[in-house]
Amino acid sequence: MHIPDGFLSIPVSASAWGITTVYALFAHRKMKEMVVKSMESIPLIACTASFIFAAQMLNFPVLGGTSGHFLGATLATILFGPFIAFLVLSIVLAIQCLFFADGGLLALGANIIIMGVVAPLVASVVLNGLKTIISERWSVLVASWASVVCASLACSLLLSLSGTIAFAIVTPAMLLVHALIGIGEALITAAAVFYLQKTAVWEELKGVEA
């Protein structure tokens, strides 16, 4: 479940839409540079978006009576960088909202900030920061986990700014459950990355970045 309408106050929802719009304008040039440089990567970007949509439907059980699902922000960031990840997650979230009533329309801006801005940027910072310190395998695992946990922290912040629930009450619960969901995120992301590394897709992507 993404944030439904009603969880966030109108000022918070509206500000979130505003921030999302400004970020989209900022990311626009970077996204364009990426797709212009490598027109060939467009089908791969679209496939990755489809894969993320499908994988987000697969809730796996975590601690008694709760479930979690894949987010995909780190996977998209590893493959295409944080700005294309923003594009991919925004499209997935918009379609989930408009066609499947998953996440509110007013809350869509907030959902995009949490999962399309915060999660990919955290993944990007962690991946770059750990690049020279630990092996690639471990940095993928840590970045995936951190992206989910930080996204849940951002969600807690928006909920408390809305006056829905006190920050001190909601945050420990959100962090606890998402620390567990983050383990699933890390395993799925690592499996996807190491599978792709064995295919021709990887060579093409590395060609794109170079």
């Binding site: 479940m1 993404h2 944030i3 439904p4 309408d5 009603g6 969880f7 439907m57 697969l58 809730n59 796996f60 059980p61 975590v62 009576g65 709760t66 479930s67 979690g68 699902h69 509110g104 849940s152 969600c155 909920l159 829905t164 629930i165 009450i169 909601v170 619960a173 959100m174 459950v177 998402h178 969901i181």
Partner: peptide
């Protein structure tokens, strides 16, 4: 897929603000 409530839904239920979902 699991039909258990997910992270946010579970927290919303436990902390009593799930009903706010309009």
């Amino acid at each position: 897929a699991s039909s258990f409530p997910d992270g946010l839904e579970w927290v919303a239920e436990a902390k009593g603000f799930l009903a706010k979902a309009e």
